[in-house]
Amino acid sequence: MMPVSVLIPGPLQPFSGGRNRVGLSSPRTVGEALAELATLHPGVSERVLDERGEVRPHINIFVGEDNIRDASGLSTRLPEDCEVAILPAVSGG
């Protein structure tokens, strides 16, 4: 497997040592990517997933251009050399 990059949004970069991109070794799914991210930067994954391990309601995760909610959620498989983007949804008030 080729490495996977996770793009870290600005509000979470204080918890990734200021990095906007984190390289992971060889996760096969989004869930595995977030688990590996949790070992490197727990403050990021804690704010993407809730205590139940579910993606928070107003967070979108994209693999390439595909939202994992339209795929298989955290079980969505990662193609080689892909980018995983964590993006806050357009919501608020």
């Binding site: 918890f15 930067h41 727990p42 403050g43 804690e46 704010r47 809730d50 205590e51 139940r52 579910e54």
Partner: peptide, 14 residues
């Protein structure tokens, strides 16, 4: 980094 107040896993609450 890890939020202080968290529901335990067995509660299945968030």
């Amino acid at each position: 980094a890890t939020p202080l107040v968290r529901f335990p896993e067995e509660t299945k609450a968030a």
